[in-house]
Design a protein around this nucleic acid. Sequence first.
DNA 1: TATTGTTATACTCTATAACTATA
DNA 2: TATAGTTATAGAGTATAACAATA
Lengths: 152, 152
Amino acid sequence: MGVQPRYKELAENLGAVTAVRRELARCLPHDCPAGAVTALMLLARFGEMRMSKLAELLAIDMSVTSRHVAQLDARGWIDRHPDPLDGRSRLLKLNSSGQELLDQVSERYTNALAASLGDWSDDDIGRLNELLARLRTSFAQAGITTRTPAQR
Amino acid sequence: MGVQPRYKELAENLGAVTAVRRELARCLPHDCPAGAVTALMLLARFGEMRMSKLAELLAIDMSVTSRHVAQLDARGWIDRHPDPLDGRSRLLKLNSSGQELLDQVSERYTNALAASLGDWSDDDIGRLNELLARLRTSFAQAGITTRTPAQR
DNA sequence: TATTGTTATACTCTATAACTATA
DNA sequence: TATAGTTATAGAGTATAACAATA
């Protein structure tokens, strides 16, 4: 197969991932939208950060990030304290309640994936992880240089 | 790595695909939402079908599919004709105008992917395609048996 | 009575633009 | 003047529930 058809196929397959994510989201607690989990995962993985950094990691506009963060704060999953280096900024940090939620969600996600992918080999899951991680970075690098949400 | 951490990692990586899809959607014509393209791709791949079949392929509720299809029809990308076998149903079919749009969108998607993934080997893209296709089927099979949108 | 599809309503996620406060 | 973040408004996508028409 030439590379052109592979790209076309990839575009179709990426569309199908949406369905998988939706399915996965069904196992979340009712007061916990999927977007919140994504943000919390990033705060868990990369630690304390500013709004603008989180927006960059999420690859969404800061205005949207701002609303998500306000929700996370309202639900008591993160703490916001002033950035000593810049009075305009606040630093975001996952707190113990958020960590607890994240642990619970991770367990549910893991169970849901195990139920669907039980017949996958460990290696295949690892390969998919590698390729998806690479896809993310490839797109992030290219995305910055093209047109994207406001601040870019 | 054990299999549990791999599942957790996969959940995170699937979240990141959302950003890729959003980025990809930016290259679409202004009057053509990404959801429309997904539906058209399925009609192109699997041919004429009923609403309920399309809803199943999209893995969304038929009520939502109904609205998407109404849009596709309003934009003149599909034809709907009565199902001779069942008066309640109408058969959906991509028409020449829809095919034309789809060709144009496929080209844009391909260009966007080529720009971001230019340094990927043909084999790696093929491997990602295989794994994503398998992910879709694994989830579809498991999903049907658990709880899902209304009609299941 | 069950099934196919449609419509009404509500919620999540996102973008753009206008705004506030600080640098 | 520029930057960090917030808020208002609008649009896409989805789910549930109530409904119409046909089987």
